[in-house]
Nucleic acid binder design. Structure first.
Lengths: 122, 122
DNA sequence: ATCCTAATGATAACGTATTTTCAATAGCAA
DNA sequence: TTGCTATTGAAAATACGTTATCATTAGGAT
C-alpha cells in the first residue's frame, strides 16, 4: 500500500506546477524548497512510480538527461534554451511531416526540438 | 604531422559510403571488413579528429548513442527504425517550424526525428 | 500510543558510452 | 634501411545518469 509522504507531495507539486519538463535535478531543487532534506534517490524513485502509474511522461532529449512532465497535455514539442539550459513547451506541430518519410517507411511517431534563446535569455 | 593509416582510411570510407549516420559500433563493424584487427579506441580517436577538422558531423539522438555522418550534405532530418535500430536520412524539412516558437524566443536551430519502421522492416 | 513496514537519505554500485594508458607497431623522412 | 615518433589495440580508467543497499525514519492501521 502506497503511503502519502511529504516528499512525494513535493515532487508531484513540482511537476504539476511546472510549465515545462523538468530534469531530476530541477525536480530535486524545487522539492527542496518545501522539503529541504529530500534526496535525489527519492526523486528517482518517485518519478519512476509516477511514470509507471501513468501520471507523468518521460521526455527523452538529444544529448541531455531525461525530463519529466505531467501527462494528459495536448500534443506539443519542446524548445531548448542554449543559454539557461531550460526546456519549454511549444504548442502545435509543424506541417508536412508525412512528406519527409521515404517511400516504404512507416511513420509511427515524431519529435521536434527547436534550439535557441528563451525570452528571458534573449 | 598526421600519418595516413589503413585504419583511418577504413573509417573514413565507412562514413563516406554510408547513406545514413553511423554509431561508433557500426563504424567499427564496417571498418573491420577491411581491417579486421581494428579496435574501438581507434574509431573513437579517428571520429574525434574528423569531427574537429570538420569533415564529419555528430548527430545527437534522443536516448541513443551519437551517430556520425560526413558533412556538407543538404539540410535533412532522420528516421529511426524501431525494429532494426538503424537511422536513415530524410530529405527536406517540415513547414511552419517558426510558428511553433513562442513570442520573445529566438530560434537558432531545429531537429526532427521520425520513428517507425524502415522499408526493410515494414 | 504502539507496532508494522513502506519510505527515506546517504552512499555505494551499476551500465554504458567514451577516454586514457602504455607497450608494441608501423608511417615516413632522411 | 634506419630511426624517430605518431598510431594502434587491449584493457583499465572515466564520466555521468540511474539504481540498489541498508540502517533509520515516519505513515497509518489498530
Amino acid at each position: 500500500m502506497l503511503r502519502k509522504t511529504i516528499q512525494r507531495d513535493a515532487i508531484r507539486k513540482a511537476l504539476v506546477h511546472a510549465a515545462r519538463p523538468l530534469t531530476t535535478q530541477e525536480i530535486l531543487e524545487t522539492a527542496q524548497e518545501e522539503v529541504p532534506q529530500i534526496g535525489i534517490a527519492t526523486v528517482y524513485r518517485t518519478v519512476k512510480t509516477l511514470a509507471e502509474e501513468g501520471s507523468i511522461r518521460t521526455v527523452v532529449v538529444p544529448g541531455e538527461p531525461d525530463r519529466y512532465e505531467v501527462s494528459g497535455k495536448a500534443h506539443h514539442h519542446h524548445f531548448s534554451c542554449r543559454v539557461c539550459g531550460r526546456m519549454f513547451e511549444m504548442d502545435g506541430c509543424p506541417v508536412g511531416l508525412e512528406n519527409l518519410v521515404p517511400k516504404g517507411f512507416l511513420m509511427e511517431d515524431h519529435e521536434v526540438f527547436i534550439y535557441g534563446r528563451c525570452d528571458e535569455c534573449n
